[in-house]
């Protein structure tokens, strides 16, 4: 492409950070994973910590995160990313360690590892992509699927009586004293992206200061799994997911926000 497109006289207004590799994302059009990857790697670049960062990829759509993120990485078994990250961090306490996980990975099969890493105050950053569905395996129910949500394993919509409630694990983790910074973000608008990036920078700073466990949930979309166009998916997300998973900080500098209590009791 670049050979045929005259770039010489154009001003560069956007560049991908060189902390992302040249490999093209395999994500579906409009999927939030790609944006989150980019912002995360932008933060790594800005902080100048590429050489001191080790990432842990999950099992899920972002299983190949290490194809894109140009840092040393480990691929964890499904759900075990927090344990793998703990292992790395404990033997390399001066390095930055993050895990990147979906809702099935983090809040179903990996619940125990997730909660205990938080409860130990493990000095790591966990990026949690909540798209309320299992993207990789073809759109089955996730623990975070909302009530009434149609998935391939809840064709009539998720119902409380048989499938229980959407699992608000981020609220649960915020309650743990080991958690230092817990926030819920999204990446579907420029403002949201800016806010997410601030959160990432803040979390890495906290890790540098050895403050403890940081969790950034990103309420994200899955146009393919939801069977919606990217634009409709974002609209559906705002209308249906944000009321259950409200955007904002739950815990900052180890202190629970006011909102946290009202949200927990309301939903």
């Amino acid at each position: 492409m670049p050979e045929t497109f005259p770039l010489d006289h154009l001003e560069c207004v956007w560049e991908k950070p060189d902390t992302l590799t040249e490999t093209r994302f395999h994500y579906c059009p409009g999927c939030g994973h790609g944006v989150v990857h980019k912002i995360l790697m932008e933060a790594v670049k800005e902080l100048g910590i590429q050489g001191d960062t080790i990432g842990v990829a999950p099992v899920g759509c972002s299983v190949f995160a290490y194809h894109y993120m140009d840092v040393d990485m480990q691929e964890a078994a499904h759900g075990r990313a927090a344990a793998v990250a703990t292992g790395i961090k404990r033997v390399l306490p001066e390095k930055y360690v993050y895990s990147y996980q979906g809702d099935g990975d983090l809040a179903a099969i990996g619940t125990a590892e997730t909660i205990h890493a938080a409860n130990r105050g493990e000095n790591i950053l966990v990026i949690f992509i909540n798209n309320a569905i299992y993207g990789m395996t073809g759109g089955q129910m996730a623990p975070t699927s909302i009530i009434g949500m149609k998935t391939s394993t809840t064709p009539e919509g998720r119902e409380i009586a048989t499938q229980g409630f959407p699992f608000k694990i981020t609220e649960l983790i915020a309650m743990l004293p080991g958690a230092y910074y817990v926030t819920r973000q999204s990446v579907h608008t420029p403002n949201a992206v800016r806010s997410f990036k601030k959160a990432v920078l803040k979390a890495f700073q906290a890790q540098k200061e050895k403050r403890g466990y940081c969790l950034i949930e990103v309420v994200s979309n899955c146009p393919s799994g939801w069977k919606l166009t990217p634009v409709d998916a974002n609209k559906w997300m705002e209308e249906n997911m944000f009321p259950v998973y409200p955007i904002g900080d739950l815990k900052v500098e180890g202190k629970l926000g006011e909102r946290m209590f009202t949200q927990v009791t309301k939903n």
Binding site: Q74, V84, R90, V91, H116
Partner: peptide
């Protein structure tokens, strides 16, 4: 580094992470 952790599942995956870190 000596850790009593939440399960053997977690333990072996910590071994994975730490061994992978050399």
């Amino acid at each position: 580094v000596v850790m009593q952790v939440e399960s053997e599942l977690a333990a072996i995956n910590m071994v994975y992470g730490a061994a992978g870190a050399g």
